[in-house]
Amino acid sequence: MLLIPCPWCGPREEHEFRYGGEAVPAPAADNDDRELARRLFVRSAPAGPMRERWYHVHGCRRWFPLVRDTTTHELTAPPEARP
C-alpha cells in the first residue's frame, strides 16, 4: 500500500486514489498515424524517477502530479503540487 501525499488532504492510503499515469500531449487533428499512435499508446516508463498524475477520487477529487521512482516506489511531491 502506497502512502500518497495528497497536496490538499495530506498523506492518505493508495486505495483512495486513481492512477493517472504519465501526462502526454493530447492527440491533435493534424497528427499523422505515427504521431497519433505515439500519443495514444506510448508512455515513457523509465526505470527511475517518473512524473505522473494521481486523482484523489475518494477525497478532494483533485488531480495532482507526483514523482515516483519506478524501481523503489519512493514518492516525492514536486513543488508545483503544493496548494
Binding site: M1, L2, Y19, G21, T70, H73
Partner: peptide, 13 residues
Amino acid sequence: DPYTSYAQRGSFH
C-alpha cells in the same frame, strides 16, 4: 497494480 513499476512487488490491498 495500476502503476508503472520495475520493482517486482505490489501493494498489500
